[in-house]
Design a protein around this nucleic acid. Sequence first.
DNA 1: CAAATTGGTTTTTATTTGAAACCAATTATT
DNA 2: AATAATTGGTTTCAAATAAAAACCAATTTG
Lengths: 168, 168
Amino acid sequence: MNAKTAAKLSIPMQMREDCSIKKSMDIIGDRWSVLILREMFLGTNRFADFQRNLGIAKNILSARLQKLEEHRIIEKRPINAETSWNEYLPTEAGEDLLTVLCALIQWGDRWLQDDKAPPMLVVDRQSRKPIDGLMVTRKKRPLKREDIRFWPSARYKTFEQQEAEQYL
Amino acid sequence: MNAKTAAKLSIPMQMREDCSIKKSMDIIGDRWSVLILREMFLGTNRFADFQRNLGIAKNILSARLQKLEEHRIIEKRPINAETSWNEYLPTEAGEDLLTVLCALIQWGDRWLQDDKAPPMLVVDRQSRKPIDGLMVTRKKRPLKREDIRFWPSARYKTFEQQEAEQYL
DNA sequence: CAAATTGGTTTTTATTTGAAACCAATTATT
DNA sequence: AATAATTGGTTTCAAATAAAAACCAATTTG
């Protein structure tokens, strides 16, 4: 067995299905979901405001909000007892997506803004001063590509794979 | 002017266009791009391997690779001098998307895996031990929703906005 | 040398998106 | 109090996009 064959064996196809990136993309991997969440973090909560602020078609917005609700990323709840109107709020899982949005902001600020200042700042809620040192860290050091690799978890251990590992 | 009016004034529509999340999503906001990048981080570099490992249609894969190349996230280069065949490699900007993928992994591991162990680990390249303490931090403390808010940068300062800020 | 694989493109079909019309409930204006 | 405007959608239809399949030339494997 050569190293190339070993590398192929070592990544189980099933892992590609189970993978959290894949599962996340099945939910938010479209043109609008992430922008809807950004809008929510900007303080938008009502249907018409999402529509106006994003320029999204109503039927698509409706479908996306439903999907996000089904997956418990947002919650739809009546604005008050009198009306039948609703507002949309992030659940705990939804709020936790802040990290993904921040990672996107940082990446985009670095690579897509043509040396211009970032258009949208992440600021401290109290002081409203920009948050510096915001990063994905690995034990207090920023994570670099060469530090890590992705690896199947123990649930995919097979004889062939264990055999293969010694070649890597 | 009440607080609600102020809040609407304070977010310039232009910022929503310039925003790095929006710009990022214009490039990688589809069902496949992020998965193609994940595949690349798993060690896949050739057309047929992407296709097999992802189950993506060839024409779509072709289109996505081209788009990613245009935006300098990946690079297409000949495998060797003799053949016309290519391999696809991440650029510096592409490798930098690791943070976004890691944020997605962490989020998905927390919210989409039904109390099961994560299917794909982020491990140290040398020791192959899982990396712990990997997170989006704010000065060494994990970032929480209630810590921050998004805020337009100075380039959108207008009279109305400055007026509005005092109400927030 | 023959067969299989790679790296695509082209054509056709199915799916998704978007625009517009429509409507009922609610709120604002005169 | 009546009218107009806004909100929160759904439905219908056209346009754009994605997927499947057929096809092909270059390259590699048996």
